[in-house]
Design a protein around this nucleic acid. Structure first.
Lengths: 236, 236
DNA sequence: TGCTCTATTTGCGCCAGCGCAAAGACGCAC
DNA sequence: GTGCGTCTTTGCGCTGGCGCAAATAGAGCA
């Protein structure tokens, strides 16, 4: 695949390729291919053989897991530069979760074999991979702890702040979470129900912390949310 | 360090070294050192700089995380052949959790630099590492999902079954979980309180599923526990 | 054997959060 | 604009699980 300057920049920005020489980045392009996925469609489903690793170029995707009983849990959201399937593509099993495009997406894709080849050729890539997985792991561990020890309200506040960091866009109302986000989605992110999320958001809206509509949340007072998330003393 | 036949066997059995040639195993020994840690003492504490990677040789250890509020969460238990610190030792940060010896422990230890050297010399080691981390990650993801969607009783049943698989020892009463295990510990493993665990175990004891004492649990009817863990239909 | 320390059990009151059901609001397509 | 489908809100009743407090039971030690 022919690399454009833009795309090289994307790779440079992607954590997996950080700090690699230009030559390596271009080599990686040679063996990548592009994949479009329309909003609502899937990159892959939980249970599919894990053959491909992706880096999102445009759009937003989300990773979710389905329980045997049919409950869904949203693991995380991805934006440009983020990779998905790194971990599993290297360990030849099946995808343990599904990846859905929440907006139209364009992604770069590599076959697992290709990634392994690249890693042998460029040890830095393997090291980056390790480091990345380590970070992801720590992250999940923290969320596990959070889920085990904290109340729903705080978990929801944290989820919103995380999303703001990832996908927030400044507007005159406040920080808009720039992706379709239902109460149900938030429930699946925080291990609660859409009802509880609805009640919590409503209360925050009345307190002026957020503004929200159908599948839309704007954070008006980030500091207020942080106060809830971290349980700081209320300002008088 | 001089390798004994026994110790080579341990390494062969450790997932990280699986499938490696004898020469590599011996090379790994050359650069390892031994560390004893007495019951109740720690290999390392959450927040220490992550410099060392361990493989448990004898005894049992457990990894736990402390929340800012002082709640503890037990992440998992380790036995002979299991490694700890793999992930972090490779990504030069601090340990995100503490490792405590729950019985007297002997472990093999490598400095992070040494591990990286070895991985460059023996690519198979790096690949094993990746695969291992991937497995660990999937595991945690499942537990996260479990915590998000399942009731306490089922989580406790699963925790016991996991422990049985790891540390179970057949006795004439049933499968003994061969490590000191308080109600509090089980609570910290499953995101609940010691009171709730106590009530649940008591009920199971009356139903003949388990026998338990002070820091001791024996599973008398594993299938009964599986029934609870998986919510199979009750046998009539 | 008795003492002490820690783990466990259990009564009790309480409340966060669940989840049904029904009504309301919003966005989209025709 | 009208209608439809989906998302959101909210009343209501319920219950799982929390956590204090106090009693009880083991385990180890002198």
């Amino acid at each position: 695949m022919e690399a454009t300057g833009n795309e090289i920049a994307l790779l440079e920005g992607a954590p997996l390729f950080g700090g690699m020489e230009r030559e390596a980045l271009e080599a990686a392009y040679q063996v990548a291919y592009r994949r479009h996925v329309r909003q609502g469609e899937f990159f892959f489903f939980q249970g599919d053989p894990a053959t491909t690793f992706y880096i999102v170029q445009e759009g937003r995707a989300r990773l979710s897991q389905l329980t045997p009983e049919g409950h869904q849990v949203i693991i995380r959201y991805l934006g440009p530069g983020n990779g998905m399937g790194i971990i599993v593509a290297l360990s030849d099993t099946v995808y343990p979760l599904s990846a859905e495009a929440v907006t139209d997406c364009l992604a770069l894709a590599w076959d697992a074999d290709t990634v392994i080849d690249l890693m042998e050729r460029y040890p830095r890539l393997a090291l980056n991979g390790m480091r990345l997985v380590a970070g992801r792991f720590r992250n999940l561990q923290n969320r596990y702890r959070e889920l085990a020890t904290e109340r729903v309200e705080r978990r929801v506040a944290r989820a919103l702040l995380r999303l703001a960091r990832q996908t927030g866009r400044r507007t005159d109302e406040g920080v808009l979470l720039d992706l379709p986000l239902s109460r149900q989605d938030l429930g699946e992110m925080t291990g609660t129900t859409l009802y509880t999320v609805s009640r919590i958001l409503r209360r925050w809206e009345q307190q002026g912390l957020i503004a929200s509509g159908r599948e839309r949340v704007v954070i008006c007072n980030p500091h207020g949310l942080v106060t809830i998330a971290e349980d700081l003393p209320e300002p008088e």
